[in-house]
Structures are given as structure tokens and as C-alpha cells.
């Protein structure tokens, strides 16, 4: 997974906050709001901390006592959705 899992960052026009256990994402340019459930909010928060998907899977597995294999599939799918929606982008290589 790591070969296709670079670190991501929130796109420049994204504003994000966690409200209680839910997440809210505003795409400023589009003026669109996305509301995320607890796990989705946690994934975005961890992406915002700079974790790559493998690190996120490890953290979620510990926090939610979930199966890492299942989590890896779900996180990869969710990350792909976030990328497609313009919420996250790959960190530029330095």
C-alpha cells in the first residue's frame, strides 16, 4: 500500500473542522459543504496531521479496535473519494 500511498494534504480552498464527533468540510471555491461521520472525520484529521494512509490505518485500528485489513481497504477507498472530490491532494515532493 505504501507504494501508492503518499502523504496528502488538504487542498488550499478546503476548510475543515471537527464538531463533536462529526467533521465538516467546506470547499470554498465551489461553496459546497460535506459532512463526515466519526470515522471519516478522523481520517481527514489524520491526513491534516500529515499521516499517510498506512499510518492512518494503524491509528484507526488502535482507536476503533478494527481489523487492519478491512480498514486498509476502506481508507484507500475513502482517500480516493476525497481526492476525486478535490478535498485532498498529494503533498508536493520536496
Amino acid at each position: 500500500m505504501s507504494a501508492i500511498s503518499p502523504p496528502f494534504r488538504l487542498c488550499a480552498d478546503i476548510r475543515y473542522r471537527q464538531i463533536a464527533d462529526e467533521g465538516i468540510v467546506l470547499r470554498q471555491q465551489a461553496g459546497e459543504v460535506l459532512v463526515l461521520n466519526e470515522v471519516g472525520a478522523r481520517v481527514v484529521a489524520l491526513l491534516d496531521e500529515g499521516l499517510a494512509p498506512p499510518g492512518i490505518v494503524a491509528r484507526l485500528a488502535a482507536e476503533f479496535d478494527a481489523d487492519p485489513g478491512r480498514l486498509a481497504i476502506d481508507v484507500a477507498g475513502f482517500v480516493a473519494e476525497l481526492r476525486a472530490a478535490g478535498v485532498i491532494e498529494e503533498e508536493a515532493c520536496s
Binding site: 464538531i19 462529526e22 461521520n37
Partner: peptide, 11 residues
């Protein structure tokens, strides 16, 4: 959860 429901949660 909708945006309105999230606002209600904040209030």
C-alpha cells in the same frame, strides 16, 4: 448527517 443537523449539534 446533514449540515443542519451538525449546526444543531453545535447549538
Amino acid at each position: 448527517m446533514s449540515y443542519q443537523a451538525l449546526l444543531a449539534k453545535a447549538v
